[in-house]
Amino acid sequence: MAGSGKFVAGLTAAALGVVAFLAYQANANAPDSLARERPGVASPEPSKAKEKELALPARSGSGLRVVYALENRRVWLVGEDDSVLRTYKVTPSSVDPPPGRYAVTSRAKQVTGSDGVPVEHVVIFTESEGTVVGFSAALDGSRPDPDAKEKTGGVRSSRADGKALWRFATVGVEVRVVK
């Protein structure tokens, strides 16, 4: 009976070794800790022709953040190591936030947008001209005219991009707005 205890202990040690090895491999092969923790965030690799257009703007901060470029109408989800995990085009709101440093202040899974359209994956980060500004995706895929006479603060994306942003941008995550 005493020998069987050593056998079980040996099997347990071997099993722990295998688990530790597999965990090490998973960690070493993952591109970014954030991508591991938030599946569905990373974008497919861009072609070489698109790299310049997709390049992260200069002076857009460092570390974990969302970067929103007003002139490019583009958002970047940036990991802790400054790697771009995802980038995509957006339709701006009629009210632009001033360039600067913000943080996600609140989120809502699904609400009615300021234009009356049902939206999901709402990520709010500031207020400008008396209008709340944040990212969202319309359930029907619509994107409001940014030159509308009515003030709207919804920066719209596709539903897939909105879902990725939702997974990435929790309350407190930095949002950098650049020209």
Rank of each mutant, 00 (worst) to 15 (best):
M1P: 14
G5P: 03
G5L: 14
K6I: 12
V8P: 02
V8H: 13
V8L: 08
L11R: 14
L11F: 12
L16Q: 03
G17M: 02
V19C: 09
A20G: 15
F21M: 07
A23Y: 07
A23E: 12
A23R: 15
Y24D: 06
Q25S: 11
Q25M: 14
N27V: 08
N29W: 13
D32P: 04
S33Y: 00
A35C: 06
R36K: 09
E37C: 08
R38T: 12
P39D: 05
V41K: 01
P44N: 11
P44L: 12
S47G: 05
K48M: 03
K48W: 03
K50M: 13
E51Q: 15
E53D: 15
E53S: 11
L54Q: 11
L54T: 02
A55E: 08
A55Q: 15
L56W: 04
L56T: 09
P57C: 08
P57R: 08
G61N: 10
S62F: 02
L64A: 05
L64W: 05
R65L: 04
V66E: 01
Y68D: 13
E71P: 08
R74S: 04
V75H: 02
W76D: 09
D81A: 12
S83G: 11
V84N: 03
P92A: 07
S93D: 13
S93I: 06
S94T: 15
S94G: 11
S94H: 12
D96T: 03
P97I: 02
P98K: 12
P98A: 13
G100P: 10
G100I: 04
R101K: 14
Y102M: 02
A103P: 07
V104G: 00
A108H: 09
A108T: 10
A108M: 08
T112L: 06
S114H: 03
D115H: 10
D115R: 13
D115K: 03
G116T: 08
V122W: 08
V122R: 10
V122G: 00
V123D: 00
I124D: 03
I124M: 06
F125N: 11
E127D: 05
S128L: 02
E129F: 02
G130L: 02
V132G: 01
V132M: 13
V133R: 05
V133G: 00
F135P: 02
A138S: 15
G141Y: 10
P144Y: 08
P146L: 09
D147N: 15
A148K: 04
K149N: 15
E150Q: 15
E150V: 14
G153L: 10
G153F: 04
G153P: 15
G154L: 10
G154N: 10
V155M: 01
R156L: 15
S158E: 07
S158A: 07
S158Q: 05
R159Y: 12
A160I: 12
A160Y: 07
D161E: 13
L165C: 01
L165V: 08
W166H: 13
W166F: 11
F168N: 10
T170F: 00
V171K: 15
G172E: 01
V175L: 01
V175I: 00
V177S: 03
V177N: 04
V177K: 10
K179S: 10
K179T: 12
